[in-house]
Simulated assay, not measured.
Amino acid sequence: MGKIVSNFFIALDGVVEAPESWHMSYINDEMMAVIGAAMEANQAFLMGRAGYDGFSEYWQANADEPYASYFNDIPKYVISSTLQDPTWKNTTVVRGDVRAVQEMKDSVDGVIFMTGSAITVRWLLEHGLLDELRLMMHPVAVGSGQKLFEDGPATKLELVRSATFSSGVLDLVYRPAS
């Protein structure tokens, strides 16, 4: 059975949108080692339709970039009711309902990274499908942008691991609280 893990770069004020505009100066060897280990453990990606559209367009058009073969070759699952014929290699469409996502999760042996969508993460948490939430909290308040948690039900999480990088970034791992 698969384990769905979500990863976000997040600012102190909860913003996860457009990390390329505020997170780059915090990248260091410590962060890259954690990201590299996570990539090695990953067996598949899970994303929503908007994430799929952005990632597939970028990685298919930039096949010569570092990590392109990783993203282009790994199995990908897209939660969508509108995507019919995905063009990105190794992509499977999963209906946007709890049963279909659970069946996909059961079919994968290992870690499935959920990427790109705070809305999808909130939905997965609400339906008991997310196993782990990994946050790299940056010491910056961005001020505006989509937040990981916006209006919605309370979500209790349990901190299972933490580390502080020399850049001041906190590496935090949470699981849904029992």
Results as ranks from 00 to 15, higher is better:
residue 20 E to I: 03
residue 20 E to S: 12
residue 20 E to N: 15
residue 21 S to Y: 11
residue 21 S to H: 13
residue 21 S to D: 15
residue 21 S to M: 10
residue 21 S to W: 08
residue 21 S to L: 11
residue 22 W to I: 15
residue 22 W to E: 15
residue 22 W to V: 13
residue 22 W to S: 14
residue 22 W to T: 13
residue 23 H to G: 14
residue 23 H to K: 12
residue 24 M to I: 10
residue 24 M to T: 11
residue 25 S to R: 08
residue 26 Y to C: 04
residue 26 Y to G: 05
residue 27 I to S: 08
residue 27 I to N: 07
residue 27 I to R: 06
residue 27 I to A: 07
residue 27 I to P: 02
residue 27 I to D: 11
residue 28 N to Q: 09
residue 28 N to V: 05
residue 29 D to M: 06
residue 29 D to G: 06
residue 29 D to P: 01
residue 29 D to L: 07
residue 30 E to Q: 14
residue 30 E to P: 10
residue 30 E to L: 10
residue 31 M to R: 10
residue 31 M to N: 14
residue 32 M to P: 14
residue 33 A to R: 14
residue 33 A to P: 09
residue 34 V to D: 15
residue 34 V to Y: 11
residue 34 V to T: 13
residue 34 V to W: 10
residue 35 I to K: 10
residue 36 G to F: 04
residue 36 G to M: 08
residue 36 G to E: 11
residue 36 G to D: 09
residue 36 G to L: 07
residue 37 A to C: 07
residue 38 A to F: 07
residue 39 M to A: 05
residue 39 M to P: 02
residue 39 M to R: 14
residue 40 E to F: 03
residue 40 E to Q: 12
residue 40 E to C: 00
residue 41 A to C: 06
residue 41 A to L: 10
residue 41 A to N: 14
residue 42 N to C: 13
residue 43 Q to I: 00
residue 43 Q to F: 00
residue 43 Q to E: 10
residue 45 F to W: 05
residue 45 F to G: 07
residue 46 L to K: 10
residue 46 L to N: 08
residue 46 L to P: 11
residue 47 M to A: 04
residue 47 M to K: 06
residue 48 G to Q: 06
residue 48 G to D: 08
residue 48 G to L: 05
residue 48 G to K: 01
residue 49 R to P: 03
residue 50 A to L: 13
residue 50 A to D: 11
residue 50 A to I: 15
residue 50 A to V: 13
residue 51 G to M: 06
residue 51 G to R: 04
residue 51 G to L: 08
residue 51 G to A: 08
residue 52 Y to G: 09
residue 52 Y to E: 09
residue 53 D to P: 04
residue 54 G to M: 15
residue 54 G to R: 12
residue 55 F to C: 04
residue 55 F to I: 12
residue 56 S to I: 02
residue 56 S to H: 03
residue 57 E to F: 08
residue 58 Y to H: 09
residue 58 Y to Q: 06
residue 58 Y to E: 03
residue 59 W to Q: 01
residue 59 W to D: 01
residue 60 Q to N: 04
residue 60 Q to P: 00
residue 60 Q to H: 02
residue 61 A to S: 06
residue 62 N to E: 01
residue 62 N to G: 00
residue 63 A to D: 02
residue 63 A to I: 00
residue 63 A to T: 00
residue 64 D to F: 01
residue 64 D to A: 07
residue 64 D to E: 00
residue 64 D to P: 01
residue 65 E to H: 00
residue 65 E to N: 03
residue 65 E to I: 05
residue 65 E to Q: 04
residue 65 E to Y: 05
residue 66 P to D: 01
residue 66 P to V: 02
residue 66 P to I: 06
residue 67 Y to R: 06
residue 67 Y to D: 02
